[in-house]
């Protein structure tokens, strides 16, 4: 089995496109729940549509990840760091799935229609205050966890790229 030093092109493209999408979703999401501005309505509409795109993207990305070989972490990297890296990646996939799921279900519980580019998506749970409370709060808490994870991930990547210079950051950037 060959051991690539960089991530396959498909994964690098998906990674950076999703990074832009997820960061936009988070910043828009945080803004739209406080803002009374004229753009709030457009932000909300965009957030829902982009959230659906992100949901599809994360499933595709998981499928690609499971099919393709990814570079191993450096041999000399401490085992604990290797474990932390794997755990972070797993948590990313989990949260990137849970964010759209809770977003979808909170819309269901609020009885609001979800139009995916003209197609009405099914309401899976009843219009109900307690269900709304649950998924609305989970959506918020998962977003906080996701933000913490992103900060950790970017800090770790910067550490590898700036300090260790061990090719870990390069594996997601360069050919």
């Amino acid at each position: 089995m060959n051991n690539p030093t960089v991530y396959p092109l498909a994964m690098r493209v998906v990674h950076w496109l999703m990074a832009a999408l997820i960061l936009s979703l988070l910043f828009v999401g945080l803004s739209m729940v406080t803002s009374l501005g004229l753009w709030q309505y457009q932000l909300l509409t965009w957030h829902k549509a982009a959230g659906l795109v992100a949901a599809v993207a994360v499933v595709l990305r998981l499928a690609i990840r499971l099919r393709l070989n990814t570079p191993r972490l450096p041999e000399n990297m401490p085992k604990l760091q290797q474990f932390a890296a794997k755990l972070t990646h797993l948590a990313f996939y989990l949260l990137l799935l849970l964010m759209p799921v809770t977003g979808y279900l909170m819309q269901n519980a609020a009885g609001r229609p979800i139009n995916a580019f003209g197609i009405m998506l099914p309401q899976l749970i009843p219009t109900d205050l307690a269900w709304y409370g649950l998924f609305r709060e989970l959506h918020a808490w998962f977003s906080v966890l996701l933000i913490l994870l992103i900060i950790l991930h970017i800090t770790a990547a910067s550490y590898h790229g700036l300090i260790k210079r061990d090719g870990v950051l390069r594996s997601m950037i360069r050919k």
């Binding site: 739209m32 729940v33 406080t34 803002s35 009374l36 501005g37 004229l38 753009w39 709030q40 309505y41 909300l44 609020a110 205050l129 307690a130 709304y132 409370g133 649950l134 609305r136 709060e137």
Partner: peptide
């Protein structure tokens, strides 16, 4: 345009209380 976010905040608070 401001009604959306304000109503949503009220909805969130009472839903959390019911939960």
């Amino acid at each position: 345009r401001a009604r959306g976010a304000a109503y949503a905040e009220s909805h969130r608070r009472r839903a959390r209380e019911v939960l």
